[in-house]
């Protein structure tokens, strides 16, 4: 091993990841070569000194300002999300109610009628609820849909193939 090779391997040596035969060769050269020993010491010292330039403290004033800013933005963000969630819930309620109205009035598209019927035959909760609104009477006012049924029917709607118009035009 010559000096150039030794310098190239300094990182591995100091990290202690060097394989044993190589390490021995490294140490052997180091013992006999003062420039390399000095190089290693200064290289290692550089490494250690650099730890100290870590900006350890954030100025209190910056910290306070940053925190206030971040928290305000987080609240804004959360408000946006709440609004979005609310909007999505309203949309969902409307979709479910449209579907149920069309069902009660026999205005589902043929494809939907089949799919919806299949679901209702299998699903006890939805089935029971639908029987309660089914009966030929044209519903002027839709009875309030219980939340669990609404969620269930919304899931059913979400799983539909795209482009399927649920009602007859």
């Amino acid at each position: 091993m010559n000096c150039k090779e030794l310098v190239y391997l300094l990182g591995d040596y100091l990290e202690g990841t060097m394989e044993e035969p190589l390490r021995q060769e490294f140490s052997l050269h180091l013992e006999m070569c003062e420039p390399c020993m000095n190089f290693l010491r200064t290289y290692d010292t550089t490494r250690i000194l650099c730890r100290q330039i870590r900006c350890e403290e954030i100025p209190e004033e910056v910290r306070t300002r940053l925190k206030a800013f971040v928290m305000e933005k987080v609240r804004e963000h959360n408000r946006d999300i709440e609004k979005y969630v609310e909007k999505a819930a309203i949309e969902r309620r409307e979709q479910v109610s449209t579907l149920l109205r069309a069902y009660a009035a026999n205005r589902l598209s043929p494809m939907m009628a089949v799919l919806f019927q299949t679901h209702n035959d299998r699903c006890e909760t939805c089935g029971a609820f639908l029987r309660s609104i089914d009966g030929g009477k044209s519903l002027v006012e839709m009875p309030k849909v219980p939340p669990d049924i609404e969620e269930h029917i919304a899931e059913f709607l979400e799983a539909l193939p795209p482009g399927e118009a649920p009602t007859l035009s």
Partner: peptide, 29 residues
């Protein structure tokens, strides 16, 4: 043949002096 071309200064002990610490920090920065 891969030897150092000149002597290498060993300043590793010098920088241990407390007085130098702050100055060196700025220099490294």
């Amino acid at each position: 043949d891969g030897m150092h071309t000149s002597l290498v200064d060993d300043w590793s002990k010098e920088v241990e002096r407390k007085a130098l610490e702050k100055e060196l920090g700025q220099v490294i920065q």
